[in-house]
Design a protein around this nucleic acid. Structure first.
Lengths: 150, 150
DNA sequence: TTTTTGGTTCTGCAAATTAAGAACTAAAAA
DNA sequence: TTTTTAGTTCTTAATTTGCAGAACCAAAAA
């Protein structure tokens, strides 16, 4: 149990770095990832994390809207039980892999601005980076497709 | 010129999202990416951005330490001229690409915690995600290697 | 009908971030 | 030697973020 708390903190920190969300949001997600059972009620989450209702409510609703978590209910129990939506997570992985293309946008903007630049060698270096970047994006898309149709 | 200001803002925003640095830091970098010539003095940067010396000083020193920018000097001119370090940028692209492996760390932590879980189907789904994730990381590393040794 | 449950929304505070401004400094120029 | 240049560092102010606490609300239970 205390073990679980430590794991939640550890994974929480990882999530903060990866997903760029607030500490509490990350801990909510981390908890749902390793809690047994993998679905937990509002109040169980709140109590485990020792956080306020408002903070938990906002975190949960953020994830619900975003599709990262879903909830199930049980007969004769008014509570909602929240759990990680693994289907959506696959999409998130794909998105992340494709986020390399943001870099492409940037590099293209640079190239556009430098079309008529006197400083050709700088232009060429940026172009090279763009080629590398494009190459990686392409390989990633191939890899994703390969996995999905299999 | 005003065009340049707009481009700097646009790229600045992109950089904020991608690199998670402060607005001014992002604008300094954006400016160096498209300024003509591609090297600019402290004061030229400060003036173009309409920012304070302290803010510009801190931004520049951040990037210098981090390797993202370098400077050159000219005979008979005491000023340093700062420019984007394209070599380092390639490394940054690689780092970013490899950050997919952070996800692996997380998924492994989840699996470790769930080894003895009753909820096998959830475990299996996470395992599947981990396999996907591992597959992508591997393909990414292959792609990087392929590009670098070529 | 009143009370309880399962939350949601509003208000406000504390901490962190961001950047301005002014005082400062080391090296070069005059 | 004094002054100027090219920044750096320190202090402070303004936002922004993250969250607690309390008031609130609709549906279900009593």
């Amino acid at each position: 149990m205390n073990d679980t708390k430590q794991s939640v903190e550890k994974m929480g920190v990882l999530l903060e770095r990866m997903n760029h969300k607030s500490p509490l949001e990350c801990r909510v997600f981390a908890f749902l990832l390793i809690s047994e059972p993998p679905y937990k009620s509002f109040d169980e989450i709140r109590e485990f994390l020792g956080a306020s209702k408002s903070a938990v409510s906002n975190a949960i609703n953020y994830y619900l809207r975003d599709g990262s978590i879903i909830y199930k209910t049980f007969n004769g129990d008014r509570k909602r039980y929240f759990m990680v939506n693994t289907e959506e997570w696959e999409n998130k992985i794909i998105e992340k892999a494709q986020s390399l293309t943001e870099m492409n946008q940037l590099l293209n903007e640079v190239l556009k601005n430098r079309e008529n630049s006197e400083h050709v060698e700088f232009y060429e270096k940026i172009k090279k980076l763009n080629d590398f970047q494009t190459f990686l994006s392409q390989k990633m898309n191939q890899a994703i497709e390969e996995w999905v149709n299999k």
